[in-house]
Design a protein around this nucleic acid. Structure first.
Lengths: 109, 109
DNA sequence: TTGACGCGTAGGAAATTTCCTACGTATCAT
DNA sequence: ATGATACGTAGGAAATTTCCTACGCGTCAA
């Protein structure tokens, strides 16, 4: 969990994930997109691979990285209580507004 | 967007957000929960406030911090294309499996 | 076999982050 | 008034991250 957030904390790594939405790529082609040395990209990919957000497939002397977004489910799960909290606040607000100026549709007959 | 991810990247800041799910608290009481000096907590709260995840209410010599989770909507939006990607992969897998061993329910009559 | 190419990693410099203590300001109780 | 308390921020040390060049290993073509 911590590791997923840490992996996503760097803009370059998020850009790499976004790039992989279009399909697998090599470290070199990814490095070309962003003006960054290939070894630097390789290290970022290593981090992403460490949390399972990316997998690799060897093809001769090329190595293709592809997106494996399953770990992002953890992020969605983390988000859950905050969305509940937010919905709770909205309904509280509705209650307050209701008390001060009840809408006709919600009035009891 | 970048700032939201940066703010969430630190475990202590995520813990602070979780603590605030239970209601507003002061920097001191938060510092007591985690064995951390109050000024350190104050700086983390400053970061959270900077991205709008936390708001403060002055009450005498106390200052209560409360959770304002709206910016997390950005995170959910960021997640969207990856969930689509994931659903796409699942349906692709289903197609492949279907071709190899079509399930009776899905057969055309 | 040899030269070129793609790759990951090591080593280290630079930048950033994190955490502390020390301070000055504002508020409450005596 | 004054002592205690809660606060934010400044300044700096330590740890971490990030990025580069240099290297060695495997793979393909000639």
């Amino acid at each position: 969990m911590d590791h997923v957030f840490a992996a996503l904390s760097h803009p370059v790594r998020r850009d790499l994930l976004a790039a992989l939405l279009d399909g697998p790529e090599t470290a070199q082609s990814l490095a070309d997109r962003y003006e960054m040395a290939r070894p630097s990209v390789a290290e970022h990919l290593k981090v992403l691979r460490g949390v399972g957000l990316v997998s690799e497939r060897q093809a001769g002397r090329n190595r293709y990285y592809s997106l494996t977004p399953e770990p992002l489910a953890l992020l969605r799960a983390w988000l859950e209580p905050y969305e509940q909290f937010w919905r709770g606040r909205v309904s509280q607000l509705a209650t307050v507004l209701d008390a001060h100026a009840p809408s006709p549709q919600r009035r009891s007959p």
